[in-house]
């Protein structure tokens, strides 16, 4: 079982990429949007194995911002994302 403080990797990626990339200034008639973005963050990992040997990846951004002598092990993830354009048939 994955620790409940952690989320599956795909959920974290979905949340990280769920950004409002539109910038509109109707008064001056400017409309900009982000077409490519790179996001890097330290993460904590909970890697566990199922009974059949497959691996489950649980991730969570660092939970605490306080310096302690007993530090979690921070791994890191860098996601390079670009604007997605759906094709006309919706696929």
């Amino acid at each position: 079982m994955m620790d409940e403080a952690f989320l599956p990797l795909n959920s974290i990626i979905d949340k990280i990429l769920d950004i409002p990339g539109d910038f509109k200034d109707e008064d001056s008639g400017v409309h900009s949007y982000i077409y490519e973005i790179e996001i890097g963050t330290p993460i904590e990992l909970d890697i566990s194995t199922n009974e059949d040997g497959t691996v489950r990846i649980g991730t969570v951004p660092p939970l605490y911002r306080v310096d302690t002598s007993f530090r979690p092990s921070y791994h890191s993830i860098t996601i390079n994302a670009e604007k997605y354009t759906a094709s006309e048939d919706g696929e």
């Binding site: 990626i13 990429l17 950004i19 409002p20 990339g21 539109d22 949007y33 982000i34 490519e36 973005i37 990992l45 092990s73 921070y74 791994h75 890191s76 993830i77 860098t78 996601i79 390079n80 994302a81 670009e82 604007k83 997605y84």
Partner: peptide
């Protein structure tokens, strides 16, 4: 209409 797709992904593990 404005969504982002993962172009590439790097993960550093300890």
């Amino acid at each position: 209409p404005l969504t982002y797709t993962v172009k590439d992904l790097a993960i550093d593990l300890n």
